[in-house]
Design a protein around this nucleic acid. Sequence first.
DNA 1: GATGAATGAGGATTCATTCAT
DNA 2: GATGAATGAATCCTCATTCAT
Lengths: 232, 232, 232, 232
Amino acid sequence: MTSDERRKPRGAETTSHLQILQRRPVQKETPNTARGRRTRSALIEASRSLFEERGFRETRISDIAERSNTSYGTFYHYFDSKEAVLNELFIGVAGEMFAASRIRRDTPHDPLAKIEAANRQYFAAAKRNAGLLAVIEEMALRDLHFRELKIQMRDLFIRRNEAEITKLQKSGVIDAGLNARIAAAALGGMVENFMQMWFIHDVEFDEEDALRTLTQLWAQALGVPVPSRAPA
Amino acid sequence: MTSDERRKPRGAETTSHLQILQRRPVQKETPNTARGRRTRSALIEASRSLFEERGFRETRISDIAERSNTSYGTFYHYFDSKEAVLNELFIGVAGEMFAASRIRRDTPHDPLAKIEAANRQYFAAAKRNAGLLAVIEEMALRDLHFRELKIQMRDLFIRRNEAEITKLQKSGVIDAGLNARIAAAALGGMVENFMQMWFIHDVEFDEEDALRTLTQLWAQALGVPVPSRAPA
Amino acid sequence: MTSDERRKPRGAETTSHLQILQRRPVQKETPNTARGRRTRSALIEASRSLFEERGFRETRISDIAERSNTSYGTFYHYFDSKEAVLNELFIGVAGEMFAASRIRRDTPHDPLAKIEAANRQYFAAAKRNAGLLAVIEEMALRDLHFRELKIQMRDLFIRRNEAEITKLQKSGVIDAGLNARIAAAALGGMVENFMQMWFIHDVEFDEEDALRTLTQLWAQALGVPVPSRAPA
Amino acid sequence: MTSDERRKPRGAETTSHLQILQRRPVQKETPNTARGRRTRSALIEASRSLFEERGFRETRISDIAERSNTSYGTFYHYFDSKEAVLNELFIGVAGEMFAASRIRRDTPHDPLAKIEAANRQYFAAAKRNAGLLAVIEEMALRDLHFRELKIQMRDLFIRRNEAEITKLQKSGVIDAGLNARIAAAALGGMVENFMQMWFIHDVEFDEEDALRTLTQLWAQALGVPVPSRAPA
DNA sequence: GATGAATGAGGATTCATTCAT
DNA sequence: GATGAATGAATCCTCATTCAT
């Protein structure tokens, strides 16, 4: 989503309802001691594994306390709510996803190679974080705060796509008539949706086939020529 | 998803948890009297509007009873659980979505026109049902039964895409080297994801721009030639 | 308190804190069935006895459920909170207190006799309701809603006092220079405070001595002549 | 309360409940160092302001630690409980109230002037301590220990009243038939109750009007002649 | 068919207090 | 002296579901 992709205001009723849920998670102070830091980490790790295994809503604070070998009260010593933990986990995942998909120095300048590299790195990072990505997806559907976070994360990718597309248009490689913003959103969404089916909903795909096909579709969709290849 | 897109078994722990939720909703008897049919409809309509407004999980049986001007007991007279109502609503939406996106007799045989027609009809139907589609999406992430339903619905579209792609490959219009199954899933996913951002997450897009761009991307991705056009 | 006794606004901090507690108790719908009415009454009676025995704050919802032989959930079926029950009890007590202290037809017109009759009836009603009056007193100190109720109840008495005093001033029996509003508040407060010490804080007094002395003080304070009497 | 004002034993259940709370606060050792004394003072000051702002029950140990810039542990280093702090604050307030209401050397011997001086000084002291007096009042209603303290403080005033009344009776100025003990309790209660309405419940009164009227009522109630005055 | 009273397990949250550092 | 991490009992409140009328 680029800067001019504004979100429509919802009908009053709907919006107000979501806003109730929004309670922006507030950061409690960081622990001062080594012991405190250890405990806090244990809580985060326990939360992460539980969220991944059984989902955010189905995870109880008591589960987290138990798995991290602390007590009920200790959780609340470090976090205001489950939401606050998820928030922190989310920030971490978003950072990792974005970092992982940054195009490396050694990537060839050839457009096709760049597209493929980006996709490969995106899938690799997504596969590692599939469990949490599912949780985020779920939360984004009902909690305005997490919806905002999800859309901001997505926006980072899409802006990059858009910049690449605009560059190709300016250099005359592809059709200047294409709406770069919409194309970036659509192609980014294609890869995101594919990732979700693959890693979250567990539909099986051959990795190399998937990468090759998505890269070809992406390139051709923009009008980047792709050398012909024999059928798989 | 075509027949060979199999779903991987999940790890034991995760799956067992989801299976608890699966409880396949059983249909209760249909009411015999006109009054009974009216009550049942009122329950379904109330459920639908509440699910759309505040989500499935946040809707209480008491909310449904209240909005449909019936009582607790009446709800259980007609349905076993909220899930049963959602199931029924879901079946209806899936049917409508599929019917709406069936390519009409009067559509030209030109591939580009067919793609555009399909997209236009898909978006129109999705826009009407956005609220419930959001609910379905949410449920599919945590409930195996609804995940199955969602994937089956998606599969209907994707098989049709795949058939079209195969036909174009056989007729030599497009590259036979493309993996039709993956391409169908990817392009269908592109449109689905776009729809979700647009109608569920409320990112604003210009309708005609969106349709034109998506159609162009879809066609070009497959290698279907698209007549050049001046920049918007 | 007469109509021109306005309450000062408190400093922002203090007030805001009390307002948080204010949550004006909302009446839940009255039960429709005889059984429902019976249960509701049992909850109120159990609440009353518990509030009197151990105070409002020290009474648990579970105590109320237990003593009224219902379940936890039943309490919430009829009331939103303990506050709602107290509110209802309070309204009842205020009504009874006021009704009881109404001067009867057969009371002589002699001012002294009227004062004594009012005091006697007030003490009798207060003695019956001492337990709840203590609860109200306690709540009025920290909860704006109950403070308002308490002051309104008190106001009913004091306005009546004030009217009597004004009448005596107009008829020339007593000094017209006395501030009737303040005198009414002070003398009403004298009797209220005495009642609290006597029935709430359990300081012992001889009933007839107390009545005679308070009546004499009240009358003389206003300047109503009191016939001399031999020492007790 | 004079020596013959005995407190009635309460019913077993009620009393036992209050006795739980009674735990007579024990004084912890006084700090030896200047730093220690400073910390202790900070805790007391923080407690006082918090008790006044939000009440005793609503004040958390953590609030006190925070406002005094110390830690949880430090609070417990100096005090056994919140009750212990309140106890200390209470002793201070009671002392100040009593000292402030002592009739000064330069007060004329005229009974009316003495009554007015006593009232003026009482109101001045109460106004300064209204916040804590409200807390004490609240606690006295539910905690036997604080009830005892409150009644002892009140008793100091009332004994003085009683002595004055007896003196006036002996000197023949006023009716010897009046029960001095009850009259002292009633008139002292009149002023106490007025103070509570004025400074705790924030009912507005004109200061000079209030003082003049209360003094006149008090004097006349006892039979002390008051020179007539024109209406205000 | 319809009603709504009753149930009680389940889960979040608070907070006084202890104690190792 | 001071710190603040850890504890867990206590309590509130919700809500799907049952069942007598």
